[in-house]
Computed example of a mutant assay.
Amino acid sequence: MADPKLHHYVPQFYLRRFTDSAERLWVWDRTNDRVFRTQPKAVAAESNFYTLPQLVDHGHSPMEMEKQFADLEGQAAAITGQWLDWVRCGHPGDSLPMPEENREAISLFLALQSLRTADARAILVAFSALRGYQAESEEDARALHAAVLWDDELVSAYADRMSRCTWLFALNLTSIPFVTSDNPLAFRTSDSRAWVKPGNLGRDAYVVYPLAPDVIMYCYPDEGVWRDSNVSRFDCQISPVLMTEGMVQSENSAQVFMASRFIASSRKSFSLEREFLKTMGVDPNAPSIAE
């Protein structure tokens, strides 16, 4: 069987959770202001995004990174699938079962999801240029990205930080679904007034990650302002706060801000997301935006 050439930096299992009744995604191309309907396999992917020909010289497959992601995604799909069932059947304040091995797997998955996207690669290339290294080609950018993704110390430290967060889940029973994007892990400042990119570099920023149109996950770090708060007592619980339409719209604005280009939804309309984009000014990729 031939190796797949189209590599997803947002997993297909995840995108399938945002499809409509016909198992298609509605996608808004933020750059060209165009809405189209497509299959999950056609979004958040690039040809040979993780292919590393130089690995052949060391006796490895050039597809090694893509294969490792596929293994981790299988675990994440099963674990988060259970979470969705529990949250949908549970009640505010209920605790979700969380074996340590599941927490470790999802912590690694979330850390890598933040680091593996096209947007993360672009930011890395820009930072490297500021430090004197200019990626002259796509191959250079790919190799630079791979060096970060395969930095065990860096990735392990980031995954450990995710594991030590307080994980809180909220159910959306409003008529407005959560949307997602080609860069779905969002970061919000501790005062909840701004989205930040890359938020994984800040002490106080917390993670907002839609799991499905009706379920969202929050990860609050155990440092900064959160260390002295009471949020840790809600770890692995269903939030006692009921989502309102305004709250859902606010979380959806994160996906507009974080996206490299594409926002995906189970519905056709992106009118609210378009309105938020107008508030972001002339540069939709600015490092932060106030609500």
Rank of each mutant, 00 (worst) to 15 (best):
153 E>G: 00
99 P>Y: 03
248 V>Y: 15
202 G>P: 01
67 K>D: 03
172 N>A: 04
231 V>Y: 07
185 L>C: 14
91 H>P: 00
17 R>G: 12
64 E>D: 09
287 P>I: 01
230 N>S: 15
101 E>I: 01
119 D>N: 13
164 R>N: 06
200 N>D: 06
40 P>M: 03
248 V>L: 07
280 M>S: 01
226 W>P: 08
171 L>P: 11
94 D>M: 02
228 D>S: 14
291 E>P: 04
195 W>F: 09
62 P>G: 01
234 F>I: 11
248 V>S: 09
275 E>L: 09
217 M>V: 14
22 A>N: 15
175 S>M: 12
218 Y>K: 10
269 S>A: 12
244 T>K: 14
39 Q>I: 05
144 L>D: 04
213 P>G: 04
7 H>A: 03
215 V>D: 13
158 Y>S: 07
289 I>A: 03
186 A>Q: 13
130 L>W: 04
238 I>C: 13
151 D>I: 01
93 G>E: 08
90 G>N: 01
101 E>T: 04
238 I>N: 11
209 Y>A: 10
245 E>V: 13
64 E>Y: 08
184 P>F: 14
178 F>W: 12
106 I>K: 03
157 A>D: 10
30 R>E: 06
242 L>Y: 12
275 E>A: 15
196 V>A: 13
252 N>C: 08
72 L>E: 07
221 P>I: 05
189 T>G: 15
43 V>W: 00
244 T>Q: 12
103 R>K: 11
36 F>L: 08
48 N>V: 06
203 R>P: 10
198 P>I: 08
10 V>T: 03
80 T>R: 15
200 N>M: 13
192 S>C: 08
132 G>C: 05
10 V>Q: 06
283 D>C: 05
179 V>I: 14
276 F>T: 12
106 I>P: 04
